[in-house]
Design a protein around this nucleic acid. Sequence first.
DNA 1: CGTGGGATGTTGACGCCGTACACATTTCTC
DNA 2: GAGAAATGTGTACGGCGTCAACATCCCACG
Lengths: 208, 208
Amino acid sequence: MTQARRSYHHGNLPAALAEAAARLAREGGPEAVVLREAARQVGVSPTAAYRHFANHDDLLHVVKERALRGLAERMEAEICAGPRLADPAAEALRRLRAIGLGYVRFAISEPGLFRTAFCRTDKPAGVTADPSASRPYQMLTEVLDELAEHGKIGPRRRPLAEMAAWAGVHGLAALLIDGPLARQPDDVRAAAIERTLDMIIAGICQAD
Amino acid sequence: MTQARRSYHHGNLPAALAEAAARLAREGGPEAVVLREAARQVGVSPTAAYRHFANHDDLLHVVKERALRGLAERMEAEICAGPRLADPAAEALRRLRAIGLGYVRFAISEPGLFRTAFCRTDKPAGVTADPSASRPYQMLTEVLDELAEHGKIGPRRRPLAEMAAWAGVHGLAALLIDGPLARQPDDVRAAAIERTLDMIIAGICQAD
DNA sequence: CGTGGGATGTTGACGCCGTACACATTTCTC
DNA sequence: GAGAAATGTGTACGGCGTCAACATCCCACG
């Protein structure tokens, strides 16, 4: 936590502000990222933020990038968590499932950050902030390529398979944190996750 | 369009405000729904709105319900558009696809309203505003039941199939209007829609 | 018919927000 | 060590949601 500073200068205001803003996003989603409140928590005047962020949207954008990074890390963790399988096709399937599971688990455990990761900002997603340029997306592509090699995905169906898979898990996450599944008991939610991941895998893995 | 009123009393302020707010949502999404602006467009003082809406969130909630109704209508229209097929299983599949198509087409043609339909509001979705209580959802359930009857969906896989299908189209819509697919040429977007609907149908229709 | 009360709309104010501008302080560089 | 560049402050403006007090209108009841 940030404590009262001794000198006129803060020392590392950009990082401190970003951290405070990220905390706000974590607890209340993108709407809760309020520049003045972040400055308040850091113990600095509101206008000080403008030395390091162009405007409110810029600050939000930084938090968004951070949230996307958190999502990516969660997904990677989920992939590494499971045991590697000997059969390459089975291993690819395991990874595909793990990627999806990491996605929705992050959404569930950090709904505020998840919503911030996909909130609209004026500034377009930069290289770092575009999920389709991130490491998990690369891994998804690799996994799908492997499945195609092993004949699990027909060549005509291979293109855009990442988008279809992404759509599935993203929608699932949305239903879980904001939609009708948010108000369901845990066992129902878990079953819905299983059912949807099954749908994605079966729907992705088709011959032509 | 609303024109200057003649008398002190407006005549139908609630409807006029809701309409103005809906217009704002249509053009700028939920963030654009600002009470004062709606009042301005109707030609009334900001506080007049408080005679008819508890607060800003209440107004937004009304627009949200309206947007959900628009989505439902679009889906129904899409179902009715196509030719009825003789084979009942094929007909059910056609409807399933039409439901999904209506969903994403509404999102594409009315992104502001679509985002408003699923934006967070303090007030929980009432009976009218809960999509899972709406007519299209009922139709989705019916279609899935039919597919189950005709053996296209295994009994163990039938439960929660609506959630899986919903997740798929909802995520697809999100990717199309805010995500990476938003910045793609039309042919890529169309292909992504096809690919994802295929995934959903194939993923839903599985034996146990 | 007229009058009084409830419904409806207005004015003014408050505190919050993002943000611009001028100024103060510190730190860095030559 | 002096000036320049970087960093933080104070003040102010307009916009927002919202409240309290007041104005206007309409209608129901005597």
